[in-house]
Design a protein around this nucleic acid. Sequence first.
DNA 1: GCAAAGTTTAGGGTTTACCAAACATTTTTA
DNA 2: TAAAAATGTTTGGTAAACCCTAAACTTTGC
Lengths: 146, 146
Amino acid sequence: MSAKISLTPKEGKYLTFMYRRQVEEDERATTTILAKSFKVNPATVTETLQRLAEKKLVAYTRYYGAKLTERGIVEAKKLLRKHRILEVLFVKLLRYDAEKACEEASKIDHYCSADLINAICRTYGHPDTCPCNKKIFSDSKCRRQA
Amino acid sequence: MSAKISLTPKEGKYLTFMYRRQVEEDERATTTILAKSFKVNPATVTETLQRLAEKKLVAYTRYYGAKLTERGIVEAKKLLRKHRILEVLFVKLLRYDAEKACEEASKIDHYCSADLINAICRTYGHPDTCPCNKKIFSDSKCRRQA
DNA sequence: GCAAAGTTTAGGGTTTACCAAACATTTTTA
DNA sequence: TAAAAATGTTTGGTAAACCCTAAACTTTGC
């Protein structure tokens, strides 16, 4: 049993941002890029990356940047799954457009339980892409019936 | 234009708890009761009530307790509306039972925008009670069509 | 009117998130 | 290749939201 990971909302945003850079775009996430996209001082980014490194979610190298570890990738995927399932819900049920769905999903994704997300996933027939066509990662606990 | 109110999640929980005591049950919410239901030290409750008083959301009297102000009631109703609309969603869409719906709603109600809640409300035909039969307060911005 | 119950104050503590300024490193370019 | 520019880190702060214990104070109920 590995130690339980507790993520703050902000840390979660870093992980998903890094996942998209690293895995989906094959680009490095530098301090400056993170600072710009979160609109914070670079010093703040360094601090957060160090905290994520302590939690073994990223491998951090001074002056170079940080890469998600295996655990970091797992956590990022969990969050992206939640985010994207919520997008599906908002588009299908409420007829939101993809952009608005993303905005609203961002506000709550971190706080939704995996259970809730799985229930939504089942209701919509286990979709495999979100409204903007990105992959929805699967969860082993989310199967037909459950 | 009145000053914008910014509520922390915890403060929101206090307001809705107090609303239920004060308006729905006509009982006073004492420090001890709040401390017990939130499982914190009474000193912590005092502190939070004082903060809510500064924000003019409650009228606080030392050694007596606190009562929601008009503004406090408005805020509590907004939150209860969000909570109850979410309960409707979870019961109708996901077939959750009332208790589970309440639990999941509690985790995210504070973070959901009024817009999102209104869209859900419209989708379910402006329900006026939640699964446990409590009133769903209306929002003037939530009308047929909108 | 006094003791018990309830409440507040005083004084701390932790965590998350920020920032500016000084300093260190890396990269670019003249 | 050396110096300038860009990038990143450290240091030392700040602030807010929560939370606690212990001591002091107020209210209540007998």
